[in-house]
Simulated assay, not measured.
Amino acid sequence: MTRTARDLLKTTTARLAPDPCSNPVVPRIARGEAPRSVLTALALEQASVIPADRRAFQHLAERGLVADPEAAAFFRMLAEGEALAEEQLEAFVTACGVDAAAAAAYAPRPGCQAYPAYVAWLALNGSPADAVLALTANFSAWGGYCATIATALRRHYGFDDTACAFFDFFAEPSPELDETATAAVRAGLDAGRLTESLAHEYGRLLQHYEAMFWSALLEPTP
């Protein structure tokens, strides 16, 4: 079933690839045209997204411990990665000129927080195996965005390696995570725990909520 699992991950990722026009922010950052206020909003919104996703992944891991250990291993890796990313995010927030008082006073934008809210819904309601497939497809686009942002922050905004480490982390390929995702999908298929139509629907919604995240960064400060 190895090839079948890999093919399913590949085809689902291709089917759910976002429309290039759905993200109005990353191309502007890539050209150095996004104002610093957008970078600041990105930093502060991620400060809410990352810990929320980490807790959702931890819950998915706990749900899969007995019935779906392969999916549990995948979500443990994600949760550990979010914890590391949360530490690296601090340098980006600081580079954006945000102090503790400004961070505490910031009001998150509903459009930006719809994505982690839906990840939390998946943690409570989705099959862990289905969530593995949906999230893996979504992460492909996110990694590409992060690679573009990391390059642009250095080239156009003068950010150093420490400030860019958050984006470098997500941009870096992770063969170990890919193998763990493949094992989880394979196990889900073998045991009949994975429903491709549901996983596709979850992934479709994740992509739409991510598009909302980027568009909301351009909205006026609440």
Rank of each mutant, 00 (worst) to 15 (best):
A61Q: 04
T195I: 11
A129Q: 04
M1K: 09
N23C: 10
M1E: 02
D19G: 03
F75Q: 02
F166C: 09
V119L: 13
W214N: 06
R186T: 02
A5L: 04
A103E: 02
V38L: 07
P173Q: 09
L124V: 08
A120V: 03
L78D: 01
G97L: 08
D19P: 05
I149W: 06
P173G: 01
D178C: 14
D168H: 12
S140A: 11
K10Y: 01
A152Q: 09
C146Y: 03
A14F: 10
R154L: 09
V185T: 11
D168G: 12
A165P: 00
S37N: 13
V185I: 15
P220F: 14
I149K: 14
F159L: 12
D160F: 06
C21I: 07
D161S: 14
Q207A: 10
V26A: 01
V93Q: 04
A14K: 08
L122M: 09
A43L: 12
A52T: 14
D161T: 14
A199H: 01
A95L: 09
S127W: 01
L189T: 00
G97W: 08
D68G: 08
A134W: 05
E87S: 09
L78I: 07
R109V: 00
F139N: 03
L16W: 07
L9V: 05
A165C: 05
T94R: 14
D168L: 14
A102H: 08
P220W: 12
L89V: 06
D161A: 13
Q207I: 01
A71F: 13
E86F: 04
I149D: 04
G188A: 13
R193I: 09
A191K: 15
K10S: 00
L206T: 04
V49L: 14
D68T: 10
E210L: 09
R155L: 15
A30F: 07
R31K: 15
C164V: 15
R154H: 08
